[in-house]
Computed example of a mutant assay.
Amino acid sequence: MVKIGNIDLGEFPLLLAPMEDVSDPPFRQVCKENGADMMYTEFVSSEGLIRNAAKSVQKLDIFEYERPVGIQLFGSDVETMAECTRIATKAHPDLIDINYGCPVKKVACRGAGAALLQDIPLMARMTEAVVKATHLPVTVKTRLGWDEATKNIEEVAERLQDVGIQALSIHGRTRAQLYKGEADWRLIAKVKENQRIKIPIFGNGDIDSPEKAMEYKNRFGIDGIMIGRAAIGYPWIFNEIKHFLATGEYLDAPTMIQRVAAAKQHLMFSVQWKGPVLGILEMRRHYSNYFKGLPHFKEFRMKLVQSMELDEILETMDIILKEFDGVILETKAKVVAYGGID
């Protein structure tokens, strides 16, 4: 069994990666219902939280259905991160996660996220301060290193374990790579194989099918897998992987009924949580992924992303459900024929 503190995650957990502007409560809900074992909030700015910025505070919203869930924090100042941790702890998550992996300029150029990979002593001090500021388990998500010349993840893992983290998720790219090229899991495996490392090690990067999940599980020996981009618009990937690992067989592709139902559920919760304007606007980025692969979909997508009326969007989804009876749908594993609406 894989455990983070007292949190039991089962034999081989599948984690939903924290993703800015994606992994909010509405998205987490559909992923939880489709097999995600552990989830994280979008990353929360320590400075924004201390300033009581509305967007940062709202990201602390968690719901009972999604447990276990972690709040992910990022920042560049040790004391600010400690204070932010104390505030986040009051929101009653199951753990606190520190972001040392975000590669985007607006984060890294401010000395936060993956920038800390350039200063391991500072990273260790910050992590220790966070650990001391909460009674909750503290975990970390990071990358292999800043660039090809400084892949220091083995040292990072030891140093952070020494100051008290209870799990480590590693994305198999450097900061310099951003999301380009293929994720390299060999160093993730070396961290897991290190006799000094006793905490769970989760691998992240490029897992987009049940076959790859099984291959990487067997090949690299990690304790679990963190899935990010592959779950956007396709929350079924978690149960597809679980089923394949357990049986060696594929689940059927999600039917059009399931796709429309998930998109509707996501939309309705988005409107409920964010309000009708922001909820509708921020849902627009998801439609292409929910209906990816449908032929001649552009006309319907334009209706979905141009309307500001909830009833009109729901009606368009109902039309999509009827229009695409009998199409070929893609799973994350293979292409299967869909025979029609039940």
Rank of each mutant, 00 (worst) to 15 (best):
Glu330Lys: 08
Ala183Gln: 08
His286Ser: 01
Arg301His: 13
Phe324Cys: 00
Ile328Asn: 10
Gly10Asp: 13
Glu47Gly: 11
Met39Asp: 11
Ala262Arg: 07
Ala129Asn: 10
Val69Pro: 15
Asp318Ser: 08
Thr247Tyr: 08
Ile188Met: 11
Thr142Phe: 06
Val130Ile: 06
Pro295Ile: 01
Arg143Pro: 14
Ile199Lys: 03
Ile4Phe: 01
Thr139Ala: 08
Thr134Met: 00
Lys332Cys: 13
Ile280His: 01
Arg173Glu: 06
Ser209Asp: 09
Pro276Met: 01
Lys217Trp: 08
Pro13Leu: 05
Thr80Phe: 02
Asn289Arg: 09
Ala253Thr: 11
Met39Gln: 15
Gly10Val: 02
Asp252Met: 06
Gln177Gly: 02
Phe63Gln: 14
Trp185Glu: 14
Ala231Asp: 14
Ile225Arg: 04
Ile222Gln: 10
Val335Asp: 09
Pro93Asn: 05
Leu73Glu: 09
Val30Thr: 06
Asp8Glu: 15
Thr247Asn: 13
Arg143Ser: 10
Ile241Trp: 03
Val335Phe: 04
Gly181His: 03
Glu211Phe: 11
Gly205Ala: 12
Val336Gly: 04
Ile237Glu: 11
Thr142Arg: 11
Asp184Phe: 03
Lys217Ile: 07
Leu304Tyr: 00
Leu144Lys: 01
Ile313Arg: 03
Asp94Glu: 13
Asp325Lys: 08
Leu95Ala: 10
Thr247Ser: 13
His296Lys: 06
Val335Ala: 05
Lys3Met: 12
Ile62Met: 14
Ile87Phe: 03
Glu148Gln: 08
Thr174Leu: 06
Gly70His: 06
Ala253Gly: 13
Glu315His: 08
Ala149Lys: 13
Ile188Phe: 05
Leu9Lys: 06
Glu299Asp: 14
Thr316Glu: 14
Thr80Lys: 03
Ala112Phe: 01
Phe74Cys: 05
Phe12Met: 09
Asn6Ile: 01
Ala91Trp: 01
Val271Arg: 04
Gln258Ser: 11
Gly75Asp: 12
Thr85Val: 02
Gln29Lys: 09
Val130Arg: 00
Val138Gln: 07
Leu281Ala: 12
Asp162Val: 02
Ala246Asp: 14
Lys141His: 08
Asp61Arg: 10
Trp185Asp: 11
Ser76Cys: 10
Lys334Asn: 10
Gly233His: 00
Lys332Ser: 14
Gly164Trp: 01
Tyr179Lys: 04
Gly233Glu: 07
Leu329Phe: 00
Val104Lys: 06
Gly224Phe: 12
Leu144Ala: 06
Tyr290Asn: 05
Lys180Cys: 02
Ile237Trp: 04
Phe291Gln: 07
Leu122Pro: 10
Ala112Gly: 03
Ala261Phe: 03
Lys32Trp: 13
Ile320Pro: 05
Thr139Met: 06
Leu14Cys: 03
Thr134Trp: 00
Gln265Val: 01
Thr247Gln: 11
Arg196Ile: 03
Val305Gln: 02
Ser23Met: 06
Pro26Tyr: 00
Gly48Arg: 05
Leu178Cys: 09
Ile232Ala: 02
Leu294Ile: 07
Ile237Gly: 02
Met1Gly: 14
Glu240Arg: 03
Ala115Phe: 00
Ala124Val: 13
Met81His: 09
Lys105Ala: 15
Cys109Gln: 15
Arg86Asn: 05
